[in-house]
Design a protein around this nucleic acid. Structure first.
Length: 285
DNA sequence: GCGACAG
DNA sequence: ATCTTGTCGC
């Protein structure tokens, strides 16, 4: 991949105030609406047809893309979707001193390439400043890919962030690549209604509140239920999906639902999660 | 001062 | 994020 905004690359040496100022710049440069060429409905489409298609019908694909066409750039060829996740390495004293970022590139539900990179940790985890701690290894791992990603899926927030510049937004803007944030817990913002125990496949809007640098009521993302139990006494928490860059909130939620197979996490992120753990063991054990 | 707080 | 076996429920 290519860094489009070297001036916005996360620098762990900045002061907290400078980091926050940089995030406001990133939020101003971010595009929280669809701005990409691929067909979002073709993300999970596999040549071997393994997805649990909920919206694509035979009629749709027949009308829009099936046979070898004359090279329409917006034709439904599966885009390259890359999942990104981190794990941490410990030194001889037992302290976390390095971050390992794993990236897994998929196309039509198939893994086409993987890569990972390790860099020294420079700062501790601080809510709201995650990209300054994990950004370096992420960019390094993405540089290691030979394929050019069409979409990046991150483990963390995008627009659902105090200054609307979560890790998915930060990386997306720096690379000028479409990106989506997939968090397992809510950093800030408020669900417009009860978001616990939602039916599978549904979503609830997450709007900005006083803790967010945006007018109250701004749509930041969605609580998305990719999987849910049948039983009445137990339930799965939703994922908090938000735009990173060049993807609108609805499309972000649509894509995450499309990428979910039999697990809660969208496949690219789940695969990156596994690879991060696998590479970690391989390096520590 | 108190509460909230991605990974 | 990470330390980790058993265990509840279908």
């Amino acid at each position: 991949m290519h860094v489009s905004r070297p001036d916005l690359v996360p620098d762990a040496g900045l002061s907290r105030e400078e980091m926050e100022a940089l995030q406001r710049e990133i939020a101003a440069a971010a595009v929280f609406e669809d701005d990409f060429a691929f067909d979002p409905r073709a993300v999970a489409a596999s040549s071997s047809g393994l997805e649990e298609g909920t919206q694509t019908t035979l009629a749709d694909s027949a009308a829009g893309s099936s046979s070898a066409s004359s090279g329409d750039p917006t034709d439904a060829e599966p885009p390259v979707v890359v999942g990104v996740d981190q794990s941490f390495l410990t030194n001889d004293d037992g302290d976390q001193d390095r971050a390992l970022s794993a990236v897994v590139a998929t196309r039509g539900g198939e893994v086409i390439e993987r890569a990972y990179a390790v860099t020294d940790l420079e700062i501790p985890y601080i809510p709201g400043l995650l990209s300054f701690r994990e950004g370096k290894p992420i960019l390094a791992a993405l540089e290691g890919l030979s394929v050019d990603p069409d979409l990046l899926l991150f483990d963390g927030s995008g627009r659902i962030h105090f200054r609307q510049a979560g890790i998915a937004t930060h990386m997306g803007v720096v690379l000028d690549a479409p990106s989506i944030g997939v968090a397992k817990s809510l950093l800030c913002g408020t669900p417009t209604e009860e978001a616990d125990n939602l039916p599978e496949g549904t979503r609830v809007p997450i709007e900005s509140n006083s803790r967010v640098d945006a007018p109250d009521g701004t749509l930041l993302g969605y609580a998305v239920q990719t999987r849910q139990y049948d039983s009445p006494n137990r339930y799965i928490n939703p994922l908090y999906v938000s735009p990173g860059h060049r993807v609108g909130p609805e499309t972000a939620a649509d894509i995450v639902l499309e990428c979910a197979t039999s697990y809660k996490l969208p496949e690219p992120v789940r695969l990156a999660d596994n690879y991060a753990g696998e590479a970690k063991r391989e390096l520590q054990d």
